[in-house]
Amino acid sequence: MDQKFEGTPKVEIRLDGRKLSRGEVTNDWGLRLQWQVKRDGKVIATPPARAESRYEHPDKTPGKYEVVLQMWKYVNYKKNKQREFISSKFIDISNTVTYTI
């Protein structure tokens, strides 16, 4: 019996200055939940978001920051020769917020 994950998780995130907060995830698959932080289009951090509903990224390097909440989507466990998953991946489950430093 392979693991089933039906439906799609959804959550709303908010931004107050540089402080992020999230609501409760609906249709929560219960897998890794993380903030994906990009600066000028490049991913610079993916801190966990499960235990706390608030987060403030400590980096103050000037640039345009984009943040979205992601969850791991399990399709199967297959990996390539570089030991990365082939089909399973993180997917965005929230709106994206932006701020500039």
Binding site: L31, W72, K79, K81, R83
Partner: peptide, 28 residues
């Protein structure tokens, strides 16, 4: 051939690794 706790990382039918623990098993 499934994600599970048996982390041999053998590149074949028993290929669970730290990534499975971090992203799937421990959070679940």
């Amino acid at each position: 051939n499934v994600t599970c706790w048996d982390m041999h990382a053998n590149g074949s039918s028993l290929d669970n690794t730290y990534l499975d623990y971090e992203r799937h098993l421990c959070p679940q």
